[in-house]
Design a binder for these strands. Structure first.
Lengths: 240, 240
DNA sequence: TGCGCTCGATTTGTATCCAATCTGGATTGA
DNA sequence: TCAATCCAGATTGGATACAAATCGAGCGCA
């Protein structure tokens, strides 16, 4: 669990306290994206400080950093609150993501290595496994399905963005990512194995296009892919 | 100029110390982009604190924020240094910028208002004025030319990005911008009125395409525009 | 009842203090 | 002469102290 505990493992690595603030940033970002710290809730400096056994100073610096990243919002004399993205924010962010990931896929079609292609192919097996678990209905299967899908999805997109070779593009996409609650897409897929299967097939087609070195096709497919995800999320927002 | 002095105007605005850190972030960012604080130089907390009449605490938080924005790099126990982007960073950032501004222009062709179009048209006069000053050679004219071009260029790109209507896109482009030294493009244009004139004409053609509501053409043109800027900058880096 | 006010508890914002770390130059030893 | 070492000053990192602001409960008053 992303529970408190001393920030890093407080040992091993050459310098440890160097990354105190960085560790806090990661820890908080994790707890936010997993929902452990809820969207819209206030983050009390003293509380975080005690949980991690540090003073408020590094906590404040971590919060400033999260503010700059757009993950939280600092209100003067009130504190930091986890940002609640509006429908508009989500729609717009997905559009930008589509454009950027599309371009990344286009570049990846030129620059990808065989090893990276293999990773892309391997994710397909994991996606199928996730679909299988989703079909078998139980509560445990559902959690399992979720974990598998996360793993495959993260690996898939990370691989493409890395393979494109443009680190600035990678950076930009990462910050865009962090601004959105992480489980958005999953929440739209969860509960309907058909959607999950459709999603898996979209991934295969994208990998195919990259494999064929057809950059423009890969771009189109990935843009349609994010467009689709965006539509599903909006649907889920309107009628649950 | 962007010299020290109490951070904001220390008056008027309802709350002032609220934005102490925010004010520092802006002030420092300004001083960095104008070159007042040099690229690659260290930023001493104590020095900044004294210049603005505050303690090191808010300065440190401002630096954390600049670190998160990618403007500055914090090295453990050494301090903050203004990031020196590598050639690769610049090339990659311009590529991303091209993709994003291209998309912004495409959207702007659909959503732009008449008032915004007027602003776009007005910039042309300013660009021409800048060219005129550049031709007349003197040292003062050169500074004047620079100031005019900055004004026109900022207004032009800001208008398009605003007109596109996607705030996440705007945000993303802004952070990308802040990571690069602001005078990069100008330094490539400076000293050659022909390049400056060519640059002005590129802007006109982009405005034309948006005016005709030809989004795809606007995208192509703006991508070519940033591509051209990037090439000029690389040239300037290699043989001065 | 309902509205506005005051006051105490909580929380944030800034300054200050001390320890840990780094830099650069002087010193020492081969 | 040169390299390794060590020390002093400078600088950062984190904790603590204190001031300013906010929130909310309880009170008074119409």
């Amino acid at each position: 669990m992303p529970k408190p505990g001393p920030v890093p493992a407080a040992s091993s690595s050459p310098r440890d306290q160097d990354r105190l603030v960085a560790g806090l940033v990661n820890a908080l970002q994790d707890r936010i994206s997993t929902g452990d710290i809820k969207i819209g809730s206030w983050i009390r400096q003293e509380r975080i400080a005690q949980e991690y056994g540090v003073s408020r100073t590094p906590v404040r610096e971590a919060l400033r950093q999260l503010d700059a990243l757009g993950v939280v919002e600092i209100v003067a004399n009130r504190g930091a609150r986890v940002k609640l993205p509006s429908i508009r924010d989500i729609t717009e962010a997905f559009e930008v993501r589509g454009v950027l990931e599309g371009h990344a896929a286009c570049l990846a079609a030129r620059n990808i290595t065989q090893a990276q292609l293999d990773v892309l192919r391997e994710t397909d097996g994991i996606f199928r496994e996730a679909v299988r678990h989703a079909r078998s209905g139980g509560e445990d299967s559902r959690a399992e399905s979720r974990a598998l899908w996360y793993r495959a999805n993260d690996a898939f997109h990370a691989t493409i963005v890395t393979a494109c070779g443009n680190r600035q593009l990678q950076l930009t996409l990462e910050t865009l990512h962090h601004r959105m609650p992480r489980n958005l897409t999953w929440s739209a897929l969860d509960g309907d194995p058909r959607l999950l299967e459709e999603n898996a097939e979209e991934h295969v087609r994208i990998a195919d296009a990259i494999d064929r070195r057809d950059g423009e096709r890969a771009r189109e497919l990935i843009m349609a892919h994010t467009q689709r995800a965006q539509e599903l999320i909006l649907l889920r927002f309107q009628e649950p």
